[in-house]
Design a protein around this nucleic acid. Sequence first.
DNA 1: TTGCGCTGAGAACGTTCGTTCTCTAGTGTA
DNA 2: TACACTAGAGAACGAACGTTCTCAGCGCAA
Lengths: 188, 188
Amino acid sequence: MTTTASDHDRIVQAADRLFYRRGIQAVGMDAVRAESGVPLKRLYAQFASKDALLIEVLHHRGAIWDSGIAAAAASAEGPRAKLLAVYDFLDAWFRTDDFRGCGFINAFGELGAVSSEVAAAAREQKLAFQHYVGALVAEMGASPVLAAQLALLAEGAQTTAAISGLPDAAIHARAAAETLIDAALLTA
Amino acid sequence: MTTTASDHDRIVQAADRLFYRRGIQAVGMDAVRAESGVPLKRLYAQFASKDALLIEVLHHRGAIWDSGIAAAAASAEGPRAKLLAVYDFLDAWFRTDDFRGCGFINAFGELGAVSSEVAAAAREQKLAFQHYVGALVAEMGASPVLAAQLALLAEGAQTTAAISGLPDAAIHARAAAETLIDAALLTA
DNA sequence: TTGCGCTGAGAACGTTCGTTCTCTAGTGTA
DNA sequence: TACACTAGAGAACGAACGTTCTCAGCGCAA
């Protein structure tokens, strides 16, 4: 049985695709209407403004990211493997055709200075990721400093893959992560 | 024609300040006029368009970055110390009041999808940095993979310091860099 | 002084875009 | 058939902005 997607969901998904592909300010509400197939009147019945839609899109994108990370971790045994699975997840993502960097980093660069809500959404997403890494590092009995370092590698890989066009960034990040983990466990 | 050269510089510097602080599309040409003190007519005599000004601004910003890195390296002895000086440079930068992340990452996030020139300027800057790190790593006799890893740490520190608001990212990156360098030199 | 060219301040123009409004075609009902 | 109602397509509106144009004022040569 096929449940037709709600206006709300179709709008969010269409806006997410467009914002990610072209940037936020480059996408007009009319393009969102065309991509979602939802007329402007119903669109504005769901979202008070483009800004409100954007915040919802960012939360949606955060949920997608979280579930992707969780799925990657599910096929790994133990905290060390789950940590390394993050970089495998990044590697697969970087090699997708429409990869254009981290949507939160991009949104922050575009609107972080002008919209405190956008800045907050990006910050929350990044802090949640750092917390996730921190929990696995703690489970390994290593220092929280290692967690910060592993998160740096993941963030750096995302910008490098996007801007420099080097998808191998994930592989390099993974190798560096292994080195750092091993070093941290030795001194623990 | 010293007056026109002065116009040129004042415009670029004013635009750089504004673009970095508020984002590019959030800054109108009238704001550039007000900040630079150069009337619109002379402004458009120097730059054919806002896009042309932006590209010049990005090159200017790249030169500033390069000279900052060079100055940090100048007070260090040997490739290892010069590499670590990068993170000290980042640390000082992150703690400045008006720090808002890497201008190239921000510009790429805002306009990279829509302007191939912006994307190219950001890519060139990032590749130049990777080349700089690669030269020092080669001087140490270590693998190019280490260079990629050290660059990832620097990129990750910039986004983390900006978005998460954690200036300690530079310190963590530096410590991770030391670990990675030592490990690479051991196996070399 | 008078006329001429240049300059700057800002008005004007054309476009884009977020948001709202209008009008028409269609539906269901008695 | 007549009527009320709804919803969608797109026009309309107002604001912002990149870019160009106007015009008053000034310096200056003769």
